[in-house]
Nucleic acid binder design. Structure first.
Length: 740
DNA sequence: GAGCACTGC
């Protein structure tokens, strides 16, 4: 019995009890374990896991049985590694029932058109209207987009989910809905008044605007336009303006009462992005004195109560959504090794299910790469025994040309498997997906306000998220969703909804923005879900330390300027120094690593990165990278040759240009420090070197370490300045510079 | 000697 494997189970168990009540499945040959006895399995710690006999009684016997199963599995694994021939024999068994994961259908189906109560909640309290379509505007448009290809515009319009309710809706709010606008926006767009509609994502703002312009037969940018960072596609004629939620938030700085808007629509409200949540508070506030302002909140969940309640019991108007039914399957017993379970499930679907592509949700790049490798390897070994299986990864950091591959149509006779991160949950839609495999995990950011440390941790996802994933199987036809956890776990162990971002993130930026809008009492600001008290306090403390707030908590002149710059307060302060710092701040604010590091070319990538190292630390390395890129003429080819992410660099350039423009506006002169690197270093806290390679933070006396990817990892100078603190396997300082 | 989910200004 391999001890290390068992303790690993213990480790996972401690973190995610619901996932690990069974021994790990390590190969296709492992046998589905019997159901546990009726009583609930107590949460066990590492020690208990290693001495299961101590549990005693029925529970103990059950544990013992299961550990035997585990050892059988490991035995099988060793056997499997012995030779190709055996391997072949095993795989021939792939179709045999006991070789497969046992799924149970719980008669649970995400219902299609007729029965699902989804739709709008249109609500009005004197000045306030809330529309909560359980199918979002964006979703409705995406659905109709597919039909646009085969039908006339008129037919498509009729086929929109909202169409049958249009009259009621129009009557109820006495105006015209964005979805069904047919040029009758007059009443709300007289005298230069606009309708604004926010989306959480840039592409959504652009594509919805483009579609509506098409519907209204106007040129995009005229009556209908969009506004996103780095790109303003509106004109004086624009009456219907689509934008990102963050963009509207910034508009508060120049127009605190949104005087030029007669209607504001917040779409995809259920996503609860940080910006959406702040908008809620601000809009609720201005709606009190702007009785002419109409507010519409659109959400795709059934949880309309929360929204209605927050907006003083605004009424709710429902419109049924439209989606194909999705059958939900759960595993009979929990799966400890979900990566292996994914691979088995994909093959199972491939061999036993009719045509249709598969979408697998994993948590990150590494997992996705491993999963793709495993799938490809097994397909190769199975050879002509199975039909062709196209395995395609997708995650945000994947270069664009490789991302594009997932949209290629599947050749006849083959099946496509897309292995994705959460990017496929909301940000992009892939045609032809019929099967979804959901292990039930995602990577989530969390923020510890006591230490000011962020961490990115794999956590079980929420039921809302799981349902969103399942819904991805029902876009083109009836689909199936295979959940790699039990129905019991879904019901009892997963959270209803994902914790809103506002409760999981550093709020330095937001606090500075609210302060500059004249909101002094942040503790009593009307948040739909308030952030932790400590988060607000720490943000205030840090702003005070940076000189953005005075001892009374009032905004200083510096603070006012800092609020204009759309970067972290630490960076906006730094930017008010020298030209080089502008570049460095832009590079630091691109939070993705600019260094591309694919698994199969790790050595090349690391060598390429070494070539950029200069003395002084990571900030100067970043400056060096940017300068060389500039000298190459912002070349794509240059990026490719040097294992640099072109997208991140282009973004850094955009941010840099924007900051430079804003600096002019707030009348701060951009001066070059003429090769003197000192001003660059005025960031972060200083640490003193400890014997064990760790450092102690000056402020909290906390032990932290240099990140191994840093250019100063080997050097370890006595004093260090760091840009951010991140917890992964240890407390790491990322982006460090040599102290004085 | 680690590993960055996804957005957004």
């Amino acid at each position: 019995m391999p001890e290390e494997k068992r303790s690993k189970v213990g480790t996972i168990n401690a973190a995610y009890p619901h996932m690990v009540q069974s021994p790990p499945r390590v190969c296709i040959g492992s046998i589905v374990s019997p159901s546990p006895p009726d009583q609930e399995v107590p949460q066990r710690d590492l020690e208990l896991e290693e001495t299961p006999m101590e549990l005693g009684g029925e529970q103990g016997r059950w544990e013992e049985e299961r550990l035997k199963t585990a050892s059988l599995s490991f035995g099988a694994k060793r056997e499997r590694e012995q030779g190709m021939r055996r391997e072949q024999e095993r795989y021939q068994l792939i179709l045999e029932e006991e070789e497969m994961i046992e799924f149970v259908s719980t008669a649970m189906t995400m219902k299609g058109t007729r029965t699902e109560e989804v739709g709008f909640t249109l609500v009005s309290s004197s000045s306030l209207f809330i529309v909560v379509p359980h199918i979002s505007f964006q979703e409705a448009l995406a659905l109709s987009q597919a039909e646009l290809k085969k039908q006339s515009m008129q037919e498509v319009r009729r086929s929109l989910p909202i169409f049958p309710y249009r009259e009621d809706l129009l009557a109820a709010i006495n105006q015209h809905q964005i979805l069904v606008i047919e040029g009758e926006t007059d009443g709300y767009t007289k005298g230069g008044m606009k309708i604004g509609c926010t989306q959480p994502r840039r592409v959504a703002a652009m594509s919805v605007a483009s579609r509506v312009a098409q519907e209204m037969s106007v040129k995009l940018g005229n009556e209908v336009g969009y506004s996103i960072r780095f790109e303003d596609c509106t004109s004086e004629r624009t009456v219907l303006k689509y934008m990102t939620d963050g963009m509207l938030l910034r508009e508060f700085l120049t127009e605190p009462d949104l005087a030029s808007y007669s209607v504001v629509i917040i779409d995809e409200a259920h996503e609860r992005t940080l910006h959406t949540d702040i908008l809620f508070g601000l809009i609720k506030d201005i709606a009190r004195f702007r009785s002419d302002l109409k507010v519409l909140v659109a959400s795709a969940t059934l949880d309309t109560e929360r929204f209605s309640c927050f907006f003083d019991d605004a009424p709710v108007f429902r419109i049924p959504g439209r989606r194909f039914p999705v059958d939900i399957f759960y595993t009979k017993a929990p799966e400890a090794d979900y990566l292996e379970a994914c691979v088995v499930s994909v093959l199972q679907i491939h061999v036993t299910q009719p045509t249709g592509d598969v979408l697998v949700f994993l948590t990150g790049q590494e997992e996705i790469e491993t999963c793709c490798e495993l799938l490809q390897e097994r397909c190769r070994r199975l050879g002509s025994k199975i039909a062709e299986l196209l395995v395609l990864p997708i995650y945000a950091n994947l270069p664009s040309d490789m991302q594009a591959k997932i949209f290629n149509p599947t050749p006849p006779g083959a099946r496509k498997v897309v292995v994705a991160t959460n990017i496929a949950e909301t940000s992009l839609t892939i045609d032809g997906i019929i099967y979804v495999i959901d292990p039930g995990f995602c990577k989530q950011k969390s923020y510890n306000a006591r230490t000011g440390m962020e961490s990115l941790i794999v956590t079980p996802c929420s039921r809302a998220s799981a349902n969103q994933r399942a819904g991805r199987a029902g876009r083109v036809a009836a689909g199936k969703c295979f959940r790699l956890y039990t129905a019991w776990a879904f019901k009892h162990e997963m959270e209803e909804t994902t914790v809103p971002e506002i409760q999981r993130t550093n709020l330095g930026n937001v606090v500075l923005l609210l302060k500059s809008l004249g909101i002094n009492d942040l503790i009593h600001f009307d948040f739909m879900d308030p952030p932790p008290h400590e988060t607000l306090v720490l943000a205030l403390e840090q702003l005070y330390a940076l000189g953005a707030l005075n001892h009374l908590g009032e905004l200083t002149k510096l603070g006012r300027r800092m609020a204009e710059l759309p970067v972290d307060p630490m960076l906006s302060k730094m930017v008010l120094c020298s030209e080089e710092v502008l570049t460095i701040a832009a590079m630091l604010s691109v939070n993705n690593s600019i260094f591309y590091r694919p698994k199969d070319k790790v050595v090349h990538a690391d060598n390429a990165r070494m070539n950029f190292v200069v003395p002084g630390g990571d900030h100067l390395v970043l400056l060096n990278v940017y300068t060389q890129w500039l000298e190459s003429g912002y070349s794509t080819q240059w990026c490719y040759e040097n294992f640099i992410q072109f997208r991140s660099m282009r973004r850094a350039r955009d941010v840099r240009d924007q900051l430079e423009g804003l600096m002019e506006r707030i009348e701060v002169e951009v001066v070059s420090s003429q090769g003197d690197s000192l001003p660059i270093r005025k960031v972060g806290e200083t640490r003193e070197n400890l014997a064990n390679g760790g450092y102690k933070t000056v402020k909290h006396q906390q032990t932290v370490y240099v990140h191994p990817n840093s250019s100063l990892f080997e050097e370890q100078p006595r004093w260090l300045i760091y840009h951010e603190l991140v917890f992964t396997t240890k407390e790491f300082m990322r982006q460090v510079a040599r102290g004085a």
